[in-house]
Design a protein around this nucleic acid. Structure first.
Length: 636
RNA sequence: GCUGAUGUGGCUCAGUGGUAGAGCAGCGCACUCGUAAUGCGCAGGCCGCCGGUUCAAAUCCGGCCAUCAGCUCCA
């Protein structure tokens, strides 16, 4: 009998008989691996465990611990769901059913819509299929066979998918029990491996993600090889929901959004404290770096927006109005205003770069379905700046902005992803200038040694951009900072500067934001800190808790002392027990609770309880003030 | 925008054709209290909006508005 050499991880080599299956190898290595292995990577290609080994190779077994293993597991789970749906609703047509980052979905086409009680039935049927423990069996077919088979079982979406495949591409079917589906695989050995699962939501999704196509019904689910893992997952989701900025914004009285103005947030006094701290910090840091601040109007003549290209490329997102029969637009961006400002004087090469910052309020018409708390709104304040410079200054300026973004984000403890977005379809200018601009951004990123993802076709209509993305509590990412390099606007507005040669030259512009939108940034901050803001940002830094009504006078005396030192403080004057007041302050996530009673009043002290550590003991008022000021002054 | 779900006091939610309910928050009174909820009482609601069915609608039907989830991840 012929033998094959199999190298495993850690360089271990084993010899087996040719034709042995991967599952047999896993079982041979250990019983545990035999039970936990879901698929295996053979010379870098992921395969079913039922595949046979007929030549020397490298094998790496994949379990639920591996991302690729989880994907296989979830993909198989989606097949189980499809099988259940076909059993219960045989008229349903199947579209696609992939694994996603967390779980899986399957898109179905059925005239009637699925209801939540249908989901329960599907779950029950899935449980049966799992208990029946069917093996996933692969069968390779030719393109013609595949189309014939799919026509026979009447799956038009699958036929469309196969027809789009290139000639000679490998095509396979997988079958478990009576259910057969077109699928590249691989799959887990059998349905019984799925020990816990839950169908999580129901949503519409266009066939092939194109809104011109039919809308299908998508069912999302998640599954695990252990029941305890599902429970952990569900508690994690619950915890994440508690951090939701929309919930915390209400509870902590930071902002509100009303039916009277969908997508137009109201900032409450406590929310404005955070806002102003952020913008104070922003102003200080920008002025240190040679930025000047300007302010441009919200409404400007429509003609300006035609000239800037917004009319042609951004009209759908703009609001328009009329003044004395003349057409005006509400600004969706600050750049044209900044450009008009640039043109108010003749500029010399000695003046460049000119860095004009603006906390500009912009309005954009977003589709109603995409509005989301402070994260996606219809009016927001950009911490914008436009840098006008000579071509030779491009790289230094871009690097300066990258450094500034990094400096800001590390202060809040954010990790971020960087993306480079290239020329979109509906854009203006020559390919040559676009290539030049894209290369400049890329060059700066490479010089900084930053890793980034390329986002084809996602640039602004006037230039490519570097985007900085931050994560929300549920792991969704939001674009915050961006740096856009623009050769188009200077051209359109005929911007110039006088060079050393005495001739007119064309400057280049950078559009950039650091926070992105103050609204979105505050939303991200709320979720990042779960509402427990660091002392310097906390809207209320300390709350004084008098033991009883007798201690009210002393409480107000301490309040005055703290206020004079610049500490944001309030007194809980309700006639309640101390435990009640502590609990309330704790839930409002106030960093310091100052308990004051007879002892403190006599000794001119406060008993300090911190949000994180609890009771930390009694100390003189002055000592407490010094400690807080030291902490809070770190950033301003 | 599209698909689905949801909309009842400041907040969280119960109420499925017959006079709108609870808990928390608020206000009042009593207690004067030492580190995560003291007790009693009071007040608070065009049941998202408009229309229809009905003797009667928070409840059933239609339209609209808003909110939530998804709509990129390609068998």
């Amino acid at each position: 009998m012929e033998q094959v050499k199999v190298s495993l991880k850690d360089g271990v080599e084993k010899v087996y008989q040719k034709g042995i299956t991967l599952l047999e190898i896993a079982e041979n290595i250990s019983r545990k691996l035999g039970k936990e292995a879901l698929a295996a990577k053979v010379d870098g290609v992921i395969k079913d465990l039922s595949s046979k080994v007929d030549k020397d190779c490298n094998v790496q077994f994949l379990t639920f611990e591996d991302e690729e293993g989880r994907k296989v597991f979830w993909h198989s789970s989606s097949h189980v769901m499809a099988q259940a749906v076909k059993r219960l609703f045989p008229e349903t047509k199947l579209a696609i059913g992939p694994a996603i980052d967390e779980g899986f979905y399957y898109d179905f086409d059925r005239d009637e819509s699925f209801t939540p009680s249908d989901l329960e039935k599907i779950e029950q049927e899935m449980a049966k299929i799992i208990a029946e423990d069917y093996a996933f069996c692969r069968k390779n077919v030719s393109k013609e066979e595949a189309i014939e088979e799919l026509n026979k079982i009447n799956e038009p979406y699958k036929v469309e998918l196969v027809e789009a495949l290139p000639e000679g591409a490998p095509i396979s079917f997988y079958q478990q029990g009576e259910f057969k589906d077109l699928c590249a695989g691989p799959h887990i050995p059998s349905t019984g491996r799925i020990k816990a699962f839950k169908l999580t939501s129901l949503a519409g999704a266009y066939w092939r993600g194109d809104e011109h196509n039919k809308m299908l019904q998508r069912i999302y689910g998640i599954s695990f090889p252990k029941k305890s893992m599902l429970d952990e997952y569900l508690t994690r989701i619950e915890e994440a929901k508690k951090r939701d900025h929309r919930k915390l914004g209400k509870e902590l009285d930071l902002f509100s959004i009303h039916e009277e103005g969908p997508g137009f947030p109201f900032f409450h006094p406590k929310g404005m404290i955070i806002w102003n701290l952020l913008t104070d910090f922003w102003r200080k840091e920008h002025s240190k770096r040679g930025y000047q601040e300007i302010k441009t109007p919200i409404i400007l003549n429509e003609e300006l927006w035609r000239r800037s290209g917004h009319w042609d490329h951004y009209k759908e997102n703009m609001y328009f109005t009329k003044i004395d029969d003349m057409n005006y637009a509400v600004k969706p961006m600050n750049c044209p205003g900044g450009i008009l400002m640039y043109k108010t004087d003749s500029r010399s090469y000695r003046d460049l770069p000119i860095r004009l910052g603006e906390l500009g309020l912009v309005h954009r018409h977003e589709l109603s379905g995409v509005l989301h708390g402070l994260m996606r709104v219809r009016c927001f304040t950009q911490d914008d700046a436009h840098i006008f410079m000579m071509p030779s200054q491009i790289e230094d300026e871009i690097i300066g902005v990258i450094d500034l973004v990094d400096y800001f984000y590390q202060i809040f403890g954010f990790e971020y992803n960087v993306e480079l977005s290239t020329r979109p379809e509906n854009s203006m200018g020559s390919d040559e200038l676009w290539d030049q601009a894209t290369a400049a951004l890329q060059g700066a990123l490479d010089k900084k040694g930053m890793s980034y993802k390329i986002n084809e076709g996602d640039g602004a209509f006037y230039g490519p951009k570097i985007d900085f993305h931050l994560k929300d509590s549920l792991g969704r990412t939001w674009q915050c900072g961006t740096i856009q390099l623009d050769f188009q606007m200077p051209e359109r507005f005929d911007l110039s500067y006088i060079g050393a040669d005495g001739e007119k030259h064309r400057p280049v512009m950078i559009h950039r934001v650091i926070f992105g939108s103050i609204e979105r940034f505050i939303g991200i901050l709320i979720e990042h800190y779960a509402g427990a803001f660091p002392v310097w940002l906390a809207p209320v830094q300390a709350r004084i808790l008098p033991i009883s009504e007798k201690h009210m006078d002393y409480a107000y005396k301490v309040k005055k002392q703290l206020e004079e030192a610049g500490i944001r403080v309030e007194v809980d004057e309700r006639n309640e027990k101390i435990g009640y007041k502590v609990r309330d302050a704790q839930m409002k996530k106030i960093p310091y609770m100052l308990v004051v009673g007879d002892k403190e009043a006599n000794e001119n002290t406060v008993s300090v309880r911190t949000r994180e550590k609890g009771d930390v003991g009694q100390k003189p008022v002055e000592t407490f003030i010094d400690e807080v000021l030291t902490l809070a002054s770190k950033f301003n």
